[in-house]
Design a binder for these strands. Structure first.
Lengths: 117, 117
DNA sequence: CGACTCGTACGATAGGCATCGTAGTACGTT
DNA sequence: AACGTACTACGATGCCTATCGTACGAGTCG
């Protein structure tokens, strides 16, 4: 009943120096992934994959999380059966100061404008 | 010899309210298009398509400019045989304050980091 | 008019990608 | 060990897209 430890299952992440702006922009150009990132930023904490209620199947959800991880936007670790997701704020803010917040602000403005957020 | 007038050939642009963040991010996630936008921002003026010396054919260049226009990132008008390209700074700054500059700064930082800009 | 430049249109091609469904693995609980 | 939950792996599918080449249209200049 104690909180599950980090599993040994490894998940490949790009190192800070390998993160590319084009990759980030591509990752966030998908509505589903932008939505995930906005939700992660809103709670500023780790969330399990199953926390998200996306209008796609679980396979597709897995795919989107992998794209986000491989582009360097999020960090993923296993805790028991759950896979926890968190923004790589430290790395992103170091590489591209202000980028993440500006993107989140832009997404929020658009959500207000189009009326879906 | 006077500067050529704006031609009657029409080019469809999205209106300000139709510009979508996802479209912008997708447009800029391509290295060739990001390069074009950086160059346009550097001169902060209109540039003809032929001014750019990209490592792709003219057909492909045409394609990239169209993607940038249809996503709302640039404005294009014909002046004689030349097609002039300019950033839609006013619209972008109004819709997403700070976004363009932050993206340009991020691109510049990466260029310095990887040594190609 | 004729020649030249700039850019477009269209078709082809090859690769990427968002999505699904099914079968399977890893882990925790009983 | 048996079961349930969380997520993955793999194959299929259909669409999107970056690229090219060739042929064409629009405009300018001689």
């Amino acid at each position: 009943m104690t909180s599950p430890a980090v599993s040994s299952r490894a998940l490949p992440h790009p190192e800070r120096g390998e993160i590319r702006l084009e990759g980030i922009l591509h990752a966030l150009s998908d509505p589903m992934r932008l939505r995930i990132v906005r939700e992660l930023a809103a709670v500023s904490d780790e969330l399990s994959c199953s926390h998200f209620d996306l209008p796609v199947t679980k396979s597709t959800t897995t795919h989107h999380f992998r794209v986000l991880r491989e582009s360097g936007v999020i960090r993923q670790i296993y805790r028991g059966t759950a896979k926890m997701n968190g923004l790589r704020r430290d790395d992103l803010d170091d590489l591209f100061p202000g980028l993440l917040d500006t993107l989140l602000d832009a997404a929020a403005r658009q959500a207000v404008r189009v009326g879906s957020g």
